[in-house]
Design a protein around this nucleic acid. Structure first.
Lengths: 204, 204
DNA sequence: AGATTGTTTGAGCAATCACTCAAATGTGAG
DNA sequence: CTCACATTTGAGTGATTGCTCAAACAATCT
C-alpha cells in the first residue's frame, strides 16, 4: 500500500500556479518556489521533475480551470450570446479580487516566451488556441440557434471575442480604476449582444 | 575636444532594444547583450550604467518611435477617425515584416513585471498611459471636428482603442495566418469608422 | 615623439541559478 | 520492536547571473 504523502500535492500545485502566474516563468526562481511550496529543492524535484515541468503542470491547471469556468457560466445562460456577454462582464467585475488584477496566465506566458523556450511556449500556444476553439464552438451554436445570421463566421467572431478578453485582462493587470474596467467590459459585452440584432445583410 | 567614440551608440541602442523587445527583460542575459552589441561587459557598463538602465533606454526609444509613428500617420490622414482606423489596419498589415510578429514591447514589459521590478514596471505603466492620452487627444479632436457626437467620451474611446491595439499585437505575436490578422484589424478599424455614423443619441 | 586623457578590454568577482544525492526521517508490514 | 522502504532533507554541484577594475589601448595634444 502506498504511504500517505506528507505534502499536499494539490496545495503545492496551487501555490506554484499562483506564483508562476504572478511572476512569470523566467522571473520565478527555485528559491521563490521553495518558499511558496514550503518544500526543499529535493522534494520539489522528486514530486515534479523540473521547474519547467512544474510550470507546465500549473499552466495546465490554469487552462482547465479557465475553460471549466466558461463552460459553467455558459451552462446556466439563457442564450448563447447572453452567456458570452456575461462572461466578459464577469471578467470586468474581477477587479479588486484576489487574482482580479492579473492578466491571463496563458497570454503572459505567450509574451514571456519565444520558440527557444520549447515546451513552455508550445503549450501556451496550444491552450490559447484551445480556448479560441471553445469560443468558436459557442458562436457556432449561436448560429445554429438562430441567434446569429446564417452568414456569421464563428471562427472570426471567436478571434475577436478572445482578443477582447485578452485586452480586458491586460487592462486589469494595470490595476486602474475598477469602474473603468467594468465600463470597458460592458462595452465589449454590448458588442456581443448586438450581434443578435444585425440582420442577415450584416458583413459579419 | 571629445574623441570619436569607437562604438556607435545609436546602433548599440538599436540592438539592445531589439533584443529586449524580442526576449523580454528577465529572459535577456548580459551574455546575450554582449553578443548583440558586440561589446564587452566593461564597455556596456561604461556606456549604459546597468542592465536595467539599458533596458529603460531601449523602452523609451520604443515608446518615442511608436508615438511618433502614430503622429506621422495622423498628420497625413484626411479625417481623425479615418487616421485612427488606418493606424489599426497598418498594425494588421505588419504580419510577416521584420518585427511584425511581436507584441507591443510596452505591454510585454507590463506583463513580465511586478511592482518588485521597480523602475522597469513603473516606466512601462507611464508609457502605456502616455499612449492612451495620445489616443484620447485624437478622439477629443474628432469630437471638436464634429466627427464624433458631442456626448462622446474621448477617454473611454481611447481605452477601447488601445485595448484593440494591444489585442491585435498579441495576436500578431502568435504568428498565425496573416490574412486572419488583417481581417481582425479591419473589423476593429470599421468599428472606429462607424463611430462617425452613430448619431447624437448614441450611448458612446 | 612623448605625454595626456579617456575608452575598451576581458579575466574574474560574489551571488544566484537550476538541480543532485547521500544521509536522515518517518511509515507500514512482519 | 525490527526491518524494509519510500520520502524528505539541505548542503553542495557546476554553470551562469549581473557587474567590476586594473591594465592595455588609441586619439589628440605640445
Amino acid at each position: 500500500m502506498k504511504r500517505a504523502q506528507p505534502y499536499d500535492r494539490e496545495k503545492a500545485l496551487d501555490a506554484a500556479q499562483d506564483l508562476f502566474w504572478r511572476k512569470g516563468y523566467h522571473a520565478t526562481s527555485l528559491k521563490d518556489l521553495e518558499a511558496a511550496l514550503t518544500m526543499k529543492p529535493g522534494s520539489i524535484y522528486a514530486a515534479f521533475k523540473s521547474k519547467e515541468a512544474l510550470f507546465l503542470a500549473g499552466l495546465e491547471r490554469y487552462f482547465l480551470t479557465s475553460r471549466q469556468s466558461v463552460r459553467d457560466q455558459m451552462a446556466v445562460a439563457d442564450t448563447v450570446l447572453g452567456g458570452l456577454a456575461d462572461h466578459l462582464r464577469s471578467h470586468g467585475a474581477m477587479a479588486g479580487g484576489p487574482s482580479g488584477n492579473r492578466a491571463c496566465m496563458i497570454v503572459k506566458t505567450l509574451l514571456d516566451t519565444t520558440a527557444e523556450d520549447g515546451a513552455v511556449s508550445a503549450w501556451a500556444h496550444t491552450y490559447f488556441e484551445d480556448m479560441r476553439s471553445e469560443f468558436a464552438g459557442f458562436f457556432r451554436k449561436a448560429r445554429e440557434n438562430g441567434e446569429l445570421p446564417p452568414g456569421a463566421d464563428p471562427d472570426r467572431l471567436a478571434r475577436r471575442y478572445q482578443a477582447n478578453i485578452t485586452a480586458l485582462r491586460v487592462e486589469a493587470h494595470l490595476g486602474g480604476d475598477p469602474a473603468a474596467l467594468t465600463d470597458l467590459a460592458d462595452s465589449m459585452a454590448r458588442e456581443v449582444e448586438e450581434l443578435r440584432n444585425s440582420g442577415g445583410t450584416s458583413r459579419q
